[in-house]
């Protein structure tokens, strides 16, 4: 079967800084991939390239078997995105924002869809709130409703739980997991939160200085680096990662 995402020798330079050095990977349908890595590793840049927000310096990206640059709009119609760093227009009501996004994604039965998503994230009572007045936890959940509105086949998330307290973060993870499994969504998410990755992702791509230095199931990664937890792996790579880039085990 054709992979949902296929990235080959992806590279991005910004005036001298190399954000993504040379990255190749393929993601199959229904896989849940966590992009893990220290600050500045190139996770956000990679996600933005997958969304066509940033054009790569070199390399190729194909999504659903089509070249991203050539079929950007058609591909985007089958994807969605949410990030702790974006928000929906703040002076619109939550409901208005969702209906407008439904228009942009040409969602059928938009009202019904929006209602069930709001219920699922337990924020139905916020329907008529002004988006700008929401707490960051509430606004993250609204963003996730938006991100699931078009039943995306590929869902890209950038630090989805960054602003959530442990309780809500846990709920959000459970919901994401449930939706992902029900619809076998392909999920690529970045996170600083090891729990996110450990619970939700079946596979981890460990990024360091723009390169993938480990790729595999969480258990496999622990084994490979001989650590007890992903957090330990993270710290050991963040501090000694240069060595590993030179001598991959």
């Amino acid at each position: 079967m054709m992979p949902v995402v296929e990235v080959k020798n992806l590279r991005k330079e910004f005036d001298g800084t190399t954000a993504v050095a040379d990255v190749s990977f393929a993601v199959e349908r229904g896989e849940t991939v966590g992009l893990l890595g220290p600050n500045g590793a190139g996770k956000t840049t990679a996600i933005h390239m997958l969304l066509g927000l940033i054009i790569p310096t070199s390399g190729s990206i194909s999504v659903f078997g089509a070249d991203l640059e050539k079929s950007r709009v058609d591909i985007l119609a089958r994807c969605n995105f949410s990030s702790a760093y974006t928000s929906l227009p703040y002076n619109l009501k939550v409901w208005e924002n969702l209906m407008i996004c439904a228009g942009l994604y040409e969602v059928d039965c938009a009202r019904q869809k929006a209602h069930s998503l709001l219920d699922m994230f337990e924020i139905a009572h916020l329907k008529d709130q002004i988006t700008g007045r929401l707490s960051s936890g509430e606004s993250t959940r609204v963003n996730l409703c938006k991100a699931l509105l078009n039943d995306p086949e590929l869902l890209l998330l950038d630090e989805p739980t960054a602003s959530l307290d442990p309780d809500i973060a846990d709920k959000v993870r459970k919901i994401l997991q449930q939706v992902q499994q029900e619809k076998s969504i392909t999920l690529i998410t970045t996170s600083h939160n090891m729990k996110d990755v450990q619970e939700v992702c079946s596979r981890i791509l460990f990024l360091h200085k723009g390169r993938i230095i480990a790729d595999g199931a969480p258990d496999h990664i622990l084994e490979k680096f001989q650590q007890q937890s992903l957090e330990d792996v993270f710290i050991s790579i963040a501090r000694g990662g240069d060595l590993m880039v030179k001598e991959p085990t």
Binding site: L76, S83, S87, L88, Y105, G132
Partner: peptide, 15 residues
């Protein structure tokens, strides 16, 4: 869109 940090939402939509 820039002010409300919504620009990305517009350009990741199939617009």
């Amino acid at each position: 869109d820039v002010w409300s940090r919504n620009l990305l939402n517009v350009f990741v939509a199939p617009v």
